[in-house]
Design a protein around this nucleic acid. Structure first.
Length: 227
DNA sequence: GCGACAG
DNA sequence: ATCTTGTCGC
């Protein structure tokens, strides 16, 4: 699949922050996402010096239509707020291998619910030029009021007087998940489409399945390839 | 200085 | 994310 390379990945943490501040001006949330038939879920696993990215494509019946993955060395350290610089390069290599056209892409991490509105879902959204949604298991920045215990209840995440996402109770007796738009989609649509792909678990099916593949493929890889 | 801190 | 088994609760 195609993607636009907006900058070099061989940068320092400080340069990465400058890039994020520059790219955030390119984000667009005024798009209407209609006819969502195929979506993709992205996740990564790690072993040794390597990272393994998986992209799973699903239809609205949760049937798997395609799966691609890519393994390569990880160059950037994990720094809260700079996740895209660690996982982005691996994801993009897997994205190049994808032959199936999708309507929306779910990422395991935040979209604009980020100190500079450039979480991995937003960052990758600018590269692949497709609607992206960030679904994280934990908060990065912002504040939100207590989310009622009732399923599907939610509260908005505020950061510097701006609404950046939603803390959403996706399953009974489970902590909320954090949903935020990446690029080319608005907050309400992000919530709506995420609900569309929930399948009885805390995390939406695209991301949940991508995670399962990421763990399974890693084990196969460790057993075959010499390290 | 202290607390927060995606994966 | 990853290192790792059982265990408490719904």
């Amino acid at each position: 699949m195609f993607f636009r390379n907006l900058h070099s990945w061989n940068v320092s943490p400080k340069e990465a922050i400058d890039i994020q501040n520059r790219l955030k001006e390119l984000l667009n949330f005024n798009t209407n996402v209609h006819n969502v038939s195929l979506v993709a879920g992205v996740d990564l696993s790690f072993f040794g010096e390597y990272g393994l990215a998986v992209i799973v494509v699903l239809d609205r019946n949760f049937d798997i239509k395609d799966v691609v993955y890519h393994v390569q060395k990880i160059e950037f350290p994990y720094v809260p707020g700079l996740l895209a610089f660690r996982e982005g390069p691996v994801f993009l290599k897997a994205w190049e291998k994808l032959q199936t056209e999708v309507d929306v892409v779910f990422f395991d991490g935040h979209g604009i619910a980020h100190p500079r509105f450039m979480g991995i879902a937003s960052h990758m959204g600018l590269f692949i030029e497709k609607p992206t949604i960030g679904v994280a298991k934990r908060k990065l920045v912002g504040n939100y009021e207590n989310v009622p215990e009732e399923v599907y209840s939610y509260s908005y995440i505020k950061y510097n007087d701006k609404t950046i996402g939603i803390a959403f109770r996706s399953k009974k007796k489970t902590k909320p998940i954090f949903i935020s738009p990446g690029n080319l989609i608005d907050l309400q649509s992000s919530l709506h489409i995420t609900k569309l792909f929930l399948n009885g678990y805390k995390l939406p099916e695209p991301t949940r399945l991508a995670h399962i593949y990421t763990q399974k493929l890693k084990k196969e890889f460790i057993g075959k390839e010499p390290q």
